[in-house]
Amino acid sequence: MTSPAVPSCRRTRPWPGSAAHYAAAMEATFTEPVNVLGMSTGGSIALQLAADHSELIARPVLGGTACTLGPIGKRAQRAYIDRARRGQRPSPAPAELVTESAIGRALVTTLGWVADGRKDHTDVATMRNAADRYDLRGRLHDGKACTLLFQGAKDLVYPLEPARQTARAILGARLISYPGRSHATTFTDKRFASDELTFLLDG
């Protein structure tokens, strides 16, 4: 039995298309610019939204994201896509993004393999293909809104340096780095909510 082919990103609508869908929904729902919270992949789409439709955004708050993936993130994305294309369970591929511990990676790999079951992973692989090609470094200056970025200092998906590049390129952007935090634990840090609210209420 063959697995469904994973569509190439060239035949799909990656982040600009996703941002356009959000922009249309925002225009239909709100009469003035709104605050936007985006985390990880949602954060990269929010960056695209801010660049393409800056008039709709009041203040973006972005966690665990940047203008492009880091090398480890890209490697894990490609491994996921390749496994999905071969009909293999793909979720073990990103284990290296979760922990640097060999035992931890083995556990995550096993849990990912079990969780995948026999599901069709075509849609997720297509989304990851778009994320793999995502690079907004040439468009960041188009975002006009005052932006706050949160980043874990040990994030392997979107490392700290691309996050710094992102903050430097957006006029007035601010970057908060949480020492010792990984990609996932950035969002569970107890400072996240309070720092976010302080930023949003400050303006």
Results as ranks from 00 to 15, higher is better:
R174L: 07
F30P: 01
R85K: 14
E27N: 06
H21V: 09
R75W: 06
S40F: 12
G117P: 07
R191S: 13
R128H: 12
A106Y: 12
C146D: 13
Y158K: 04
R181C: 12
L149A: 14
P179N: 08
L156F: 09
A163N: 12
L62C: 04
L62R: 06
G117N: 02
D132L: 14
A50I: 01
R164A: 05
A51I: 02
A76M: 05
P179Y: 13
R75Y: 10
D120C: 00
C67V: 12
A46M: 01
D123R: 08
Q48G: 10
V6M: 06
Q77R: 08
K154I: 08
M1C: 11
A145F: 06
P71E: 07
S18L: 13
A66L: 09
H121S: 03
T110G: 13
T29Y: 05
L140Q: 15
G104P: 09
R164V: 05
H121E: 05
M39L: 11
C9Y: 13
L201I: 02
Y80W: 07
L136S: 14
A28L: 03
S182L: 09
L56N: 10
D120V: 04
I45P: 04
W15Y: 12
P92D: 00
T110A: 13
R78Q: 09
A184T: 10
L148Y: 03
M127I: 13
T2Y: 09
P7I: 04
Y178G: 07
H183C: 08
T147I: 08
D202P: 01
L160N: 01
K119W: 03
T109S: 11
S54A: 15
M39Y: 05
A106T: 06
E27C: 02
T12I: 15
T126R: 12
T188I: 11
H53K: 03
R83T: 00
L37A: 08
P179V: 10
D189P: 04
G43W: 11
Y80K: 04
P92R: 03
S91V: 02
F199K: 01
K119F: 04
R133L: 13
C67N: 15
V124S: 11
Y22H: 03
Y80F: 15
T166A: 14
D123C: 13
I176W: 07
N129L: 07
L197W: 00
L62N: 12
T186Y: 13
K119T: 02
K74R: 12
G43N: 10
G73M: 04
L149G: 10
D82Y: 10
G42K: 02
T2A: 14
A115N: 03
A167Q: 12
A169D: 14
T12A: 14
A79R: 15
L136P: 07
A153Y: 13
L175F: 14
A23L: 00
A23Y: 03
S44V: 12
F187W: 01
T68E: 13
L69C: 10
T2P: 01
V61N: 11
V108N: 03
V34P: 06
S194Q: 08
G117D: 01
S3C: 11
K154G: 10
R11W: 08
S182C: 11
S91L: 05
M39W: 08
D116M: 07
W113L: 05
L69K: 04
T109K: 15
R83P: 00
V108D: 00
G63V: 08
L111E: 06
F192S: 02
R86T: 00
H183W: 08
N35W: 02
